[in-house]
Design a protein around this nucleic acid. Structure first.
Length: 260
DNA sequence: ATGCCGACAGGATGTCGA
């Protein structure tokens, strides 16, 4: 089973690029973020034509997450628990069953959190704390779980072109990195780092200042696997070439092959 | 020190992203 995550930065604008990538990469399950549309405006027909079932947790203008799956999507849950008053569409969970077993998978769009020192940053940290609480609960099932998406966190210096340039940014704050480590310390593993220790492996390049041309990127899109999920991990990679296409998203897909 | 670019809503330009 091949799973993938991609922050598309508007599914409306990215529909052509998305269908082209699906045809080429042939993932079984895809988590999308920043679809930036309401459920009724999600172009489900275009994906159904390629053999995908769709689950959508949309929002007008901002955020919005979705799951595409060639396998039936079961037990679809469109939010994190205990989100009193949080109306952002940033989490969508479902269960899929492959030939060798089930996978619980979530599409995650963690808050950006900039600027630091504002309620946006405290919202980011509290949202990640809620995610961690939910992630901990999921471990009790002792099943393969994949929490995949745009975490808006640069884990380490080797995950950005110029660490000094990101020191004041919410994506690189000690509290942000600690929030990710807290989830990892529960028992989740960064699938990419389980297969690749190289520096300079990015998933995002800003549209501005020639960031792509100069390879000024950051690695912020992550595939986190529960212990049982990690047991099934065969390979993990970044589809970097997608950043070169017509009307690209500023993020590229990250994928993992699981023995499921 | 800030904008750079791009998407969105709305119908100009401000907000947001990272």
């Amino acid at each position: 089973m091949k799973i993938a995550t991609w922050n598309v930065n508007s599914i409306k604008v990215r529909l052509e690029a998305a269908t082209a990538w699906l045809k080429e990469a042939k993932p079984d399950v895809v988590a999308l973020q920043e679809i930036k549309c309401m459920d009724e405006n999600f172009p489900a027909e275009a994906f159904e034509a390629l053999g995908y079932n769709c689950a959508v947790h949309g929002q007008k203008t901002y955020n919005g997450v979705a799951l595409l799956s060639k396998l039936p999507l079961e037990d679809v849950t469109p939010r994190l628990p205990s989100g009193d008053g949080d109306d952002h569409s940033r989490y969508l969970e479902a269960v899929v069953t492959g030939a060798k077993g089930t996978l619980r998978i979530a599409s995650i769009y963690a808050p950006n959190g900039n600027p630091v020192g504002t309620e946006k940053f405290t919202y980011k940290l509290s949202w990640l704390e809620r995610l961690g609480g939910h992630a901990k609960g999921l471990l009790k099932n002792e099943e393969p779980v994949a929490l995949i998406g745009d975490y808006n966190i640069i884990p380490e210096d080797r995950d950005c072109y110029d660490p000094k340039a990101w020191l004041g940014d919410a994506l690189f704050q000690p509290q942000s990195k600690a929030a990710l480590r807290t989830i990892e310390n529960l028992g989740y593993t960064d699938a990419f780092r389980a297969r690749n220790q190289a520096a300079g492996q990015y998933t995002f390049w800003d549209y501005q200042a020639g960031a792509w041309r100069k390879n000024h990127g950051i690695r912020i899109d992550h595939i986190l696997l529960s212990p049982q999920g990690l047991d099934r991990l065969k390979d993990c990679g970044i589809d970097k070439h997608v950043r070169e296409g017509d009307k690209p998203s500023d993020h590229v897909p990250v994928w993992a092959e699981l023995d499921l």
